[in-house]
Design a protein around this nucleic acid. Sequence first.
DNA 1: CTGAAAGCGCTTACAG
DNA 2: CTGAAAGCGCTTACAG
Lengths: 346, 346
Amino acid sequence: MASKPNGVPALRMEDVARLAGVSVMTVSRALRTPPAVAASTLAKVRAALEETGYLPNLVASGLASSRTQVVAAVIPLISQPFAPTLQSMSDVLRRASYQLVLGVSHYDPLQEEALVRAFLSRRVDGIALFAGGHTPQTIAMLEQAGVPLVEMWADSATEFIVDAVSVPQRRGAQDVVRHLLARGRQRIGFIGGSTRHNIRAQARLGGYLDGLAEAGLPHDPAACEEATHFLMEGGAAALARLLERRPQLDAICVASDILAAGVVFEAHRRGLSVPRDLAVAGFDDAEIARSMYPALTTIDMRAEDMGRRAAEMLLERTSQSSRVDLVAMPSRMHDLGYTLIVREST
Amino acid sequence: MASKPNGVPALRMEDVARLAGVSVMTVSRALRTPPAVAASTLAKVRAALEETGYLPNLVASGLASSRTQVVAAVIPLISQPFAPTLQSMSDVLRRASYQLVLGVSHYDPLQEEALVRAFLSRRVDGIALFAGGHTPQTIAMLEQAGVPLVEMWADSATEFIVDAVSVPQRRGAQDVVRHLLARGRQRIGFIGGSTRHNIRAQARLGGYLDGLAEAGLPHDPAACEEATHFLMEGGAAALARLLERRPQLDAICVASDILAAGVVFEAHRRGLSVPRDLAVAGFDDAEIARSMYPALTTIDMRAEDMGRRAAEMLLERTSQSSRVDLVAMPSRMHDLGYTLIVREST
DNA sequence: CTGAAAGCGCTTACAG
DNA sequence: CTGAAAGCGCTTACAG
């Protein structure tokens, strides 16, 4: 079975035990709870470990202990602004001896469902999802599995399953509009991602509309445009469509920095100066927001805190037991707040 | 053990078998090799599967079969230009019923070693690494484990362990210099990443020097700068340092599009027009290269083909047996070539 | 502090 | 086409 063509099998704990002159249980203890082993025994085991270069079989230990020490995260896209969230999540988990595995859903509830199914089959000890847009089957599987679960990037008004980390995105978008109005802009357009299956896109559009309403400005549907995909090109193309209908806009509230960067590039391509001719504000405080010229005014979404807090919430659940009752459990929502960062683009 | 607080244990194959009135072996076969089961039996099993919502325990099956159906990739950074590689890798692997798991090394050989150790402990069926910069321990572990292995993003002249997918990056950088010279530029600077532990950075710097030498131009070390990190800000800061020493440069050959974007932003910030005052060429054909204004001249590194081919090479090895002899095995290098893409920035 | 026994939930290999 | 037995390499739970 697990043998090379030339017949050398993989090392087992038993090989280490024989070399150290102890039982496998003692090797197992030396690896997991060293203080529970006599110092002299520990030294013998460690010497044998060193000599053989033994690597524990975590598949076997996962089966025996019903704990895989793996946590899964399903993200919509493998790109900014999610990288800092994953980084901090991974850091917190690693310190607790958990490994983070990733799945990418492309904003597709069915792909998310397939990923959740695969992760549950691998018996991960916890799952982090992005809030909203789950299929009923996904939720049913999670409840049946009783796996610790946290949702991230929720809006503070969002529905969620048990635990969530949120940011008041709707209010954030409203603050962007207030800021643009305070800068003297009156004809403010909006570019966002598809609101289908995406509560973040919905919340941001909602905040834009709140901001207009608060100022007594009418909602002009023709001044709103949906980007076809979350790439800079998507933002550029959306601005082109928008300006064709409403060439007199003097500001754009954009629901993502990636899209906003594309908006700025397209404005430059058309000879418009940002912010003189067109003010552009983004969302997320992604890397490009502070790096590009002009630097983007944006909403800091606490991406790093989001990952840290999500990981901590998961760890609290996993420490309780390997299976939890998602339905009966009191749910928790941790709201992180946000900050409007004013830079050169507005 | 694997039971909820309220006492409901996780479903096992045995539960499905009992409901379907067959043995666990028949359920196992129905799941993995349906044609080996009689149609009427299959129907009964499938009904039971459906009714229970059973999810196979892949941890147990991994232990029993010595195959986890998981392939690991260790990447330097979770960002462009690696996303398309991971995407195509993941697609090819999924079609073959393998799952891709990711590790991020931050260009640190010790972190790579820790990741490889973790993946080997989880008994992944294959590992994809970025070529170069491995510790001796990493290589020793891989050889002892006998795990199928492929290295990506090698330069065609690079050393590698067994299998590799490469692009002639050195020649690519040389072509960039030729292109800049053909555009009439004479004072061409260079900005790259740290060449420490990074054969890609080394190859690209080498190509730049080849290009100068070919044209009979002297190598001016003060016209070369190393970015401190692979972010746009790193490219911007590097240009600032470079122009302080050599303000008369009329072109910059940059070893990465991300850095090149930062270079363009910094040029704009200083009131320099790109390409009129300063031509800027990147490398990788990352998303931002075609999206930004001005769009970047760059080298298409076949990022997508790289992932596809790497996955295929791994699958060929895993199909042979679960353990392979990396030392005795004939190694294979697949070179993908590259394309110079001329856009607005030069 | 240490170890022998049983078991985790599957698959392999074999028998019928 | 189907199933009973053995085993994958660990950990749990218990005994000493």
